[in-house]
């Protein structure tokens, strides 16, 4: 068993909480970029929230975008640096709350970037508020009695919203457990392959634990993710499948 971090992870700074999935996602992206031989050219755009901390541990040229504008920032960058693969990395708050318009229209126009959305069903950076992805009954700092899904809606499912869009790849993975992590890596790889083939928007949502803001121990977080989150957010490929 090989236990070596990818060269493109620097370890100079690492700001994620114990049990968080961001570190795993960052590693998978670095591994895929290296294995596919595009690490020298990869450009990334990160949101201002937790995911932006990859700026400090990734050895990639990176742009930090405004909250929820990561995807359109990446689109502008890709249209300028057409020979570079461009990856947008951001969370569910950015994707499905403040950046919902950007998310939907990138899908509608089938924009030629990789989107990696880390979904932890909560606003992490601001301390655990309810998100459009929060589960019914989920306790957060802005829904202390549990999310009332009648008032605030069911968790947002991108695969349903994108059902009519002609995009090359849409998948959801999970960042807990070796089998899921391996599967998530294959999804990311598939997204890279199709992106390098200029097929359009390659979209991977990754379910991540957020032990700090869920107020759960890491192992309980893993359980919550696999037993509760996946009821609302099924894992798998929804468009352009057969990731091997």
């Amino acid at each position: 068993m090989k236990l070596k971090a990818p060269d493109r992870i620097t370890f100079s700074h690492f700001g994620f909480c114990p049990g968080c999935g961001h570190g795993v996602a960052g590693r998978l992206i670095a591994e895929v970029a290296e294995e596919m031989g595009v690490a020298d050219k990869l450009l990334t755009a990160v949101d201002v929230a937790c995911g932006s901390m990859h700026m400090n541990d990734w050895h990639f040229d990176t742009v930090m975008a405004a909250h929820g504008r990561t995807l359109v920032t990446a689109i502008g960058l890709k249209k300028t640096r057409r020979d570079n693969p461009v990856l947008a990395y951001y969370g569910d708050g950015a994707a499905y709350a403040i950046g919902m318009a950007e998310t939907m229209h990138a899908g509608l126009r089938n924009e030629n970037v990789i989107a990696i959305v880390v979904n932890n069903a909560i606003f992490g950076m601001t301390g655990g508020q309810m998100a459009p992805t929060s589960l019914p009954g989920q306790k957060t700092t802005s829904s202390p009695l549990g999310k009332d899904a009648v008032r605030f809606g069911q968790p947002f499912k991108v695969e349903e919203a994108f059902s009519g869009f002609d995009i090359p790849y849409l998948a959801r993975g999970a960042l807990v457990g070796a089998a899921n992590v391996n599967r998530a890596k294959k999804m990311i790889k598939k997204a890279f392959e199709k992106h390098l083939d200029n097929q359009g928007l390659c979209y991977v949502e990754l379910l991540s634990p957020c032990p700090t803001n869920w107020n759960l121990e890491p192992l309980d977080s893993k359980r919550f993710l696999l037993e509760e989150m996946t009821k609302h957010f099924p894992l798998g490929e929804f468009k352009g499948g057969d990731a091997k």
Binding site: G76, T80, A101
Partner: peptide, 18 residues
């Protein structure tokens, strides 16, 4: 773009690339 917000942030990305 879908909005002026999206447009100006696309400009932000394009400018980042020079």
């Amino acid at each position: 773009a879908e909005s002026e917000l999206a447009a100006v942030n696309m400009v932000y990305g394009a400018s980042s690339g020079g």
